[in-house]
Each structure stands twice: as C-alpha cells, then as structure tokens.
C-alpha cells in the first residue's frame, strides 16, 4: 500500500505536465486540424532558451519568462512558415511537415547546446516532504508544478468559456465556415491557437526539465505520452486532454514503479492501441470524425 501511495504521488507531477503537453496538442488540433508533432520539440527548444537565460542571469523567473515569450513566438513562426502554406494540400503533407520541423529543431538545438543531457536546476527544493518521520515522494517543487498547472488550466478555461475571443476560437475550431459567416476572423484565431499552444508547451517544458535531463531528444517520449492522452481524451476536448493527461501520467508511474521504468513507452502504446480499438473517437467527444 505504501508503494502504491508512493507511485501515485510520484505520478501526479508528471501527470499534470503530460496534461499540459496534451493540452498544447489539442489547442493546435482545434485551431488547424493538424496534430503538431513538433510541439514538444518546440518546447524542448524554448526550455533550452530558458536554461541559457537562467545560466546567464541566475533568475528562474526570467528564464520562465524567456521560455513563455519564445514559446509564443515559435508557435506563431511555425504556423506562418510551415502550416499555413501547407495546410490546403493533403493531410499527409501537413503531418510530414511537422515531423520536418521536429527533426530540424532537434538538430538545431544539438548544434547550439550539444547532444548531451543537461541538468535543469529546480527553482525550489526537489526533495520529498518529510511527514511523520518518512520522506514522501512529493517535493515542494512538485507542489509548485501542480499549482502552476491548476492556475494555467483555470485561466485557459476562463478565457475559453467566458470571453468573446474564447468563443470565437471555439467556433472557429468547430465550424470555421459558420464562424466566418458570423464575422469571426478565423485565420487570426488559428494563429492565436498556435501561439497559446506554444505558450502552454513552453510552460510544460520548463516544468518538466528539472524532473529529467534536458537534451534535444529528451521530450520525444513525452510526445508519445501527450499524444496518447490527447487522443484518449478525444483530441478536441480540453477537459479530456487534462483528465487523461493526468491519468496517463499516473498509469505510467504506477506501471513503472511496480515493474520497470523502461516499460513506460510500451504502456503508453498499449493504452493508445486499446483506445483506438475500442473507442476510436475518444472518451470526451461525441463526433464520429475519425474513420472514412
């Protein structure tokens, strides 16, 4: 039982981070009907920028700000340079293009920062709380992660459900033609979607970096986790992405804890396959959009 609690606690912070990553994928999917497979390569890149800023200034907050700003900008750049020109052609082209961006960004990061894993120091203590004479696998840093994610998700929820821009973005995602006929400038909403996704991805990158090591390919495996969570949630659903992001993180933590951490990608793969076989349209959506 103690083991279970340990693994569970250990899974929470990675779960909420995976939730953020899934959220970034969903935001892009909703705005442009493209899964941005380069999303986490972008996050890796902005996290490296954050690490550089931190090394130069010593300030974690400045580093975070740099990551967020560059995440936003990178999202917009990728949208304008790659996705907008390619989107009208076949879907294969869009998918391949995002993989092109992934390959180029990872290599570019390797050119600048090298291929070895680098430590990203946490802003606050990352050793477990000591309660009742026992060290629990949940640290002040984990708490910071959870609180940050909750705040961010709440803020996004308010933007999407309570503001005109949020309504315009949702309408553009669900039915661009009706949105345009209502006077919404849909193309701007798409850019905004990519920008917000870049922002959310950047937050996820900076938060996850202290829990692992940062290298150009370090986030590849998170891409699989985040994609799994986003697909199980239904790809269109923000709530689904968050819920199944946390769920995926917990399952992976439990399985890794009871067996071996090298199982994590296999677990994600199994979750994905089971979902695609039995509920291909995802849990949080009622559309039948996936098959021919």
């Amino acid at each position: 039982m103690t083991n279970f609690i340990d693994y569970f606690l250990g899974g929470i912070s990675s779960g909420v981070i995976i939730a953020l990553m899934a959220l970034a994928l969903v935001l892009v999917w909703r705005s442009t009907r493209v899964v941005n497979f380069a999303q986490l390569a972008q996050a890796m890149f902005t996290t490296f920028i954050a690490l550089t800023v931190r090394d130069l200034t010593g300030s974690w907050l400045l580093a975070l700000a740099a990551a967020l700003a560059s995440g936003l900008v990178l999202g917009v750049i990728v949208h304008f340079l790659v996705i907008r020109p390619v989107k009208r052609m076949d879907t294969s082209g869009a998918i391949i293009a995002t993989f092109g961006v992934l390959i180029a960004l990872e290599a570019f990061a390797g050119m600048i920062w090298g291929g070895d894993g680098k430590a990203f120091p946490p802003p606050i203590r990352n050793t477990g709380f000591e309660i009742g004479g026992r060290v629990w696998p949940f640290s002040p840093y984990d708490l910071l992660v959870v609180v940050t994610v909750i705040v961010l998700v709440l803020a996004l929820t308010i933007v999407f459900t309570r503001t005109s821009v949020g309504l315009a973005m949702r309408a553009s995602a669900f039915n661009p033609e009706v949105a345009r006929l209502s006077g919404v400038r849909v193309s701007r909403m798409l850019v905004l979607g990519w920008a917000i996704a870049g922002f959310v991805g950047a937050v996820a990158g900076v938060l996850v970096a202290p829990l692992t090591t940062l290298s150009p390919t370090a986030f590849d495996v998170f891409l699989v986790f985040a994609f799994t969570a986003a697909v199980i949630g239904g790809l269109d659903s923000l709530v689904g992405a968050v819920a199944f992001g946390i769920g995926t993180g917990l399952v992976i933590s439990l399985v890794s804890g009871y067996t071996d951490s090298s199982n994590a990608p296999v677990v994600a793969l199994v979750l994905l396959v089971v979902n695609l076989l039995f509920k291909p349209e995802g849990v949080f959506t009622h559309h039948k959009a996936r098959t021919v």
Partner: peptide, 23 residues
C-alpha cells in the same frame, strides 16, 4: 488497427510503435 484510423491518428500510433517497440 491502422486501417480504422486516418491521418494524424495513424501517424501518432506509429510514432508510439517507433518509440515503444525497441524498448
């Protein structure tokens, strides 16, 4: 499995295979 999927779903599934199977 793949025949039931299209576009990004298939790409994501095979991405999972590429990362998961060698593991």
């Amino acid at each position: 499995i793949a025949a039931r999927l299209k576009g990004p779903y298939l790409a994501g599934l095979t991405l999972g295979i590429a990362v998961g199977v060698p593991a």
